[in-house]
């Protein structure tokens, strides 16, 4: 009887660990990740992966960006990713020209993990496409809004 209870507890613990691992994975489960994976290391692209203490001043835990020269295929890929991911967004600020998102700001809160996620995108005047993904605590919201819009 005691052995059975021990097994039940063990299984419950493992189930909890599995669910936790899946929750961590969910943070990465955004469509825009494919953009970083697919184009980040190719010629003509600049990809930044930044984490750790250097970001604490910005109340961020993670910063990822990719800048590529204008390319129709990559632009289509990004547009589709943004369309998919923005369904999770709490705040959306977009500029759309001729049906194309030329500038976008999306805030995606993770209620369970108390992490705020941000996606920023812009087609630059210099013909570059820049996509940024950031993660930070709940206190990052004010600062990011201020940095992005230039005011609170």
């Amino acid at each position: 009887m005691r052995t059975k209870m021990r097994y039940t507890r063990l299984l419950a613990l493992l189930l909890l660990l599995t669910v936790s691992a899946m929750a961590i994975h969910a943070q990465e489960d955004l469509r825009i990740n494919t953009i970083f994976e697919k184009y980040g290391k190719q010629k003509g692209a600049t990809m930044v992966i930044f984490s750790g203490e250097a970001l604490s001043n910005y109340r961020l835990n993670m910063y990822r960006s990719i800048t590529v020269k204008f390319d129709k295929t990559i632009l289509d890929d990004i547009q589709q990713s943004l369309e998919a991911d923005k369904h999770q967004a709490r705040q959306i600020k977009e500029v759309i020209n001729d049906g194309i998102i030329t500038s976008g700001y999306y805030q995606l809160p993770e209620v369970k993990t108390r992490i705020n996620r941000y996606i920023l995108f812009k087609i630059g005047n210099d013909g570059t496409l820049t996509l940024i993904y950031m993660e930070g605590g709940t206190d990052s919201e004010e600062l990011i809004n201020k940095m992005f819009t230039g005011r609170k």
Binding site: T46, M47, V48, I49, S51, G52, R64
Partner: peptide, 16 residues
């Protein structure tokens, strides 16, 4: 492998 390219560390890839 997945983390090294997507999450952790401080890196920049310029033209690969």
């Amino acid at each position: 492998d997945k983390q090294s390219t997507t999450q952790n560390g401080n890196y920049v890839w310029v033209d690969g």
